[in-house]
Amino acid sequence: MGIQDLMLKSPYLNAASMFGFAPPSHWPLDLPPGAFITHPISLKPRAPAENRTVLQFAGGFLLHTGLPNPGLFATLKQFARRWARSPLPVWVHIIPSSPAEAAQMVAHLENIEGVTAIELGLPPGLTDDENLRMIEAACGELPLLVSLPVDRYREAWVFQTGKSPVSGLILSAPRGVLFRTDRTLVEGRLYGPALFPQMLAAFHALRSTGLPLIVGCGLYRHADVEAVLASGALAVQFDGALWKGLLP
């Protein structure tokens, strides 16, 4: 599997939840985009988390949003035409809550013009078997990429992913916990340049799987981007760097 097989125009992508539901008119980095990855989409609508927040720490930030989205069908109604017109291939990031939902969403997306791949986000807290069943259910006619939070790369199911026709793993934002100012705890996804070493550990450990790897976390510097591509990453996904800009 190479970037041609995934119809990527370049190895530089956005991470899901960084760029909304439709390709932006302006790509803010000086590296040409290779595809557009949608905001995470569930089958049914999801409201924002009640305690949604962003908390910063040195070199990163925690984002807790509840992944709000209008649900697959409302999203298609609003954005499918823009996906069809997009000069970039569109990967739809789905967040099903069950294998049946995964299969239903994938079957529907196979008929949507412009969609060239599925990116699967797995709910936290599933067992190894449940993760594998979800992945199997999401396998359809479109290439499937599985989003793997880097804090979970040692889980047993990851090394069995290759038994399904998966096109690759995306090393994505890990989860973490921080205190709010009122000392209550909040859990969310972590982003930022401080995560690069953790991502690199996962990247090197997972090369033995033989699966194509997309590095989608901790990339804020040109040098790091080129280093992971030279080390065999199929592509890279930018997260917070799209909002802040790359560091020198």
């Binding site: 939840s17 960084m18 760029f19 909304g20 539901f21 932006p24 803010p28 905001h39 409201a47 924002p48 988390a49 949604r52 927040t53 962003v54 930030f61 984002l63 807790h64 949003t65 509840g66 992944l67 709000p68 917070g240 799209l242 909002w243």
Partner: peptide
């Protein structure tokens, strides 16, 4: 309120409920 994506990402952190919805 924090607006980390400043309109680029529809990230949802700054979502507010109005009479016209979110």
């Amino acid at each position: 309120t924090p607006m980390p994506c400043a309109g680029l990402g529809s990230c949802g952190v700054c979502a507010v409920h109005t009479r016209a919805g979110w």
